[in-house]
Amino acid sequence: MLYKDKRPLIVFIVPSLIILGIFLYYPFIQNIINSFYEISGLAALGGGKYIGIENYKRMFADPGIHQSLKNTLYMMFFAVFFQVGIALVLALMVDSITRGAQFFRTVFFFPVVISATAIGLMFNLFYSYNGGLFNQILLKLGLERVLWLSDELAIYMVSLPVIWQYVGFYFVIILTGLNGIPQDIFEYALLDGVTGVKKTWYISLPLIWDVIKVCLILAITGSLKVFDLPWVVAPNGAPKGLTHFLGTYMYFKTFISQSVGYGAAISVLIVVLGLVVSFTVNKVFKRDTIVY
């Protein structure tokens, strides 16, 4: 009834679309065009040589892309299960307590506000082989030193700070969702003997399902774009390019190697991949929306 008349849509949606269109979609269309050119350096942008789909062909043969793609999928997996997972557990826990809830809400947010440069440096000083904190602790315990950023361990060691830093972000979002559940629903539940884990499983989770779905989409898109923290912890995909993600590899190609056209093609790949995965998540997790 209320939403039969579609005319107000113009006021609601068009302003956003205009802003997005001019300052995001149009620039990105330019980027798509650039991906068909060979452009050496940002200053040469708009010039360059038309090479058709050469940049895309090149991606298939580029081992750097394969490595970053693999790592990005890892990161996506970590982000979905650990980042959103831990955030969900923490949010449910904080939601269930009253004493100290304010404190935890505040301190869990700290890592999100601290710049990647500072967190990256801290982890560098954790991992450093000579005199890093982790190895100092191992030595004190009478154990052998460990090469934390070895070829095998590096991807996990680089993902760790990224995952950890953004738990607070999803925590705040999920907590906001939980707080939106009216209290009377829980009171009725308590009367019916639904408590603890059951309460969480049958009442809280279904009611914040849409919020969790949003978190998943943000985690997926975030891991496809991830750039600054990995770049500080392990520049140039150290060691040996084994920890490159699509985001860092795109930066590397555009700014360090100055292959702007190729970098543009990588960002097209990032967007296409992100759309495919987001679309799938939306389909898989589709449920009837529950209103309170």
């Binding site: 939403y3 980027n31 942008l45 898109t221």
Partner: peptide
Amino acid sequence: RYTFRLKNTLYLMFAGSLLFPAFSTIVP
């Protein structure tokens, strides 16, 4: 609140723009 034809397309457009790397749109 509204149901309209391009809604799903719009949603994907919003999700897609989350993915644009700042480095690739800065010059335009």
